[in-house]
Design a protein around this nucleic acid. Structure first.
Lengths: 341, 341
DNA sequence: TATTATACCCAAAACGTTTTGGAAAAGCAA
DNA sequence: TTGCTTTTCCAAAACGTTTTGGGTATAATA
């Protein structure tokens, strides 16, 4: 059985109050006593019971994050990198990170959030992949529960977030392609309920308009943010009577799937067809050819979000609660050629 | 403020004992009363305080898993898929999953494990990427703390695990290559402290021996399980006076990095050179060409591990505490050609 | 010397559950 | 009616902390 503060106190012939306060660094305990306490506590391997502390302090020192889990989405590098960022930030602030899985908008998702909020086992929640009308935001705001998000919603609710200006990013990307003589630029998107889809798609359209290219409905397709989804959707696009000369994926995974589809049609990516993605995950560096992408700082964003969340939990004001970052256009061989040459 | 059991009791003019027992399904409360309790509890949005329950019950209903975090490793698909499996299994058993990050064998890693064990905030721990002399296993076993692992160690300690027979897998893989006329088969491994490296490397050597190929030291290199590591290491191997005709990566990421290096040398993977990996993550399907790999059921393994862990925690006997699975050799175009033709 | 300030320590309450060990009420048998 | 079960409920203890509100020496001041 683990050692409790009572045993430490007994060993030292002190009250548990004094032991507690010595360890917490209060100044109403003699320096000498504090030393004794700290030493024996360590020697005895004393670590406060998390549950007891949580109960008394009424906070959990834990933040929560929910990933889609397996079906219908599969784990993607975005989540992995995001979790790494959250985890490292949590560790460095002496927090714990609680993870759960639930498919977006499922019954299970409602359950998990409700449980976490009501049972007070997390002090705050990090959201990603926001949806236009995100019930999670509504729910958490309603319960006055601390949240921060990667991305925003269409709701009239104020909450701290970090967001990529992916619209502008996609405008740049389309421009880049148009400058290389592409006119038939396809777009493989995500379900329309995701904010990221709306933003990126708007950028795509704006980019087309800026380049004076009419928007061709047949070149617009929806997929599910996975490699396999991108692959299947691209197959359809490439089977069109007049196939696109460029494909933009809503994320890198989609683009990677599209590259495979193109190869299987006997097309050489980087000369017959251009393909680009979004995210700038490590994958994109190692594809054949390396993938042009819009890079967002996933890991760092996760870290910053944790810091924002901590401030929100502590009730401190946020210097800047709506942070907008520019993704970086990384041009690689998958698009870096002129179609007409 | 969240609603407590006391408020529910007051509303119903019952004792908190009765409310508690009604909700927990004891049979010493009248059916009618139970209905009333359940209904109002739900109506009031009552959820038991996790901390209070943990404190009283002396268990956390939480399992822990620690990932490397960012440096020096980067998030890889293995972790992502493993976490998805753990998370889904945890959810379906009404558990929580606590995640932390710490670089292998670091000071921080010791800290996290010690804290989790001593503060009783998790009931059990899942380990992956075991090391030959894994201090974590020693430490947990010493403290009689429930653990399950993906892989084993060289220590004389008994604990439940699921393990891949990756040795046999690599033997098959080498055989596959040898049958296609390869004699210069390189191997890019991981640091020797990992069990997986020892096993897979042994399989590589055994496979060479079986094919009557002398082991050439210059074709053996160590990397760090990342794409970038595989890329850099492969560059060195390909710069040898007599370059290898096949490269086996200790995992898919390494192989993916190697593919890139090969392409950059102007080699065509799948005809000039063969490259294969291990893991069978989704990445491997979409590379160019698709990557030959040894597939292991990461997601399912994680799920099964959680179930084993739960039994260990409950003190129930395990029907089978050392499970050994065969990886499946998936032959794709990256190796499926004969060198001499 | 008497008073006050300072330094150090502690008992008890509280956090919100679950569990123990009955007690009261109701039903049944004699 | 009396005694015995059975059913239904509950008071109080316990889990291990932190925090509140003093209390008791010792030192400083008058």
């Amino acid at each position: 059985m683990a050692v409790t503060i009572r045993e430490v106190a007994k060993r030292l012939h002190l009250s548990i109050t004094t032991v507690s306060r010595a360890l917490d660094g209060y100044d109403d305990v003699a320096a000498k006593t504090r030393q004794r306490v700290i030493r024996t506590a360590r020697a005895m391997g004393y670590v406060p019971s998390r549950a007891a502390r949580q109960l008394r302090r009424q906070r959990a020192d834990t933040i929560g994050y929910i990933i889609p889990g397996r079906a219908p989405y599969f784990t993607d590098p975005f989540s992995a990198e995001f979790i790494a960022g959250l985890g490292d930030a949590a560790t460095s602030h002496n927090l714990d990170l609680l993870i759960s899985t639930a498919p977006p908008d499922s019954e299970a998702e409602h359950h998990v959030y409700a449980r976490w909020v009501q049972s007070r086992q997390v002090d705050g929640i990090v959201l990603s992949r926001l949806r236009l009308k995100d019930w999670r935001v509504k729910y958490l705001a309603q319960n006055d529960f601390p949240l921060v998000a990667h991305g925003h919603t269409q709701l009239r609710l104020d909450f701290p977030y970090i967001e990529m200006d992916s619209r502008t990013g996609f405008v740049q990307l389309v421009k880049h392609l148009a400058e290389r003589s592409h006119r038939r630029i396809a777009y493989i998107g995500a379900p329309a309920k995701f904010t990221l889809q709306v933003e990126r798609f708007a950028g795509y359209q704006q980019g087309l308009a800026a380049a004076g290219i009419a928007c061709d409905e047949t070149l617009i397709a929806e997929s599910d943010l996975t490699r396999t989804g991108g692959y299947q959707t691209a197959q359809r696009l490439l089977a069109l009577p007049e196939r696109p000369t460029a494909i933009i994926g809503v994320n890198d995974l989609t683009a990677i799937g599209a590259m495979r589809a193109a190869r299987e049609q006997g097309l050489v990516v980087g000369s017959d067809i251009a393909i680009a993605g979004y995210d700038g995950t490590e994958d994109s560096e190692h594809t054949d050819p390396p993938l042009t992408t819009l890079k967002q700082p996933i890991y760092d964003t996760a870290q910053r979000l944790v810091e924002m969340l901590l401030k929100r939990i502590a009730g401190e004001p946020l210097a800047d609660s709506h942070i907008i970052l520019q993704p970086e256009l990384i041009i690689r061989e998958s698009t870096n050629f002129d179609l007409s040459s």
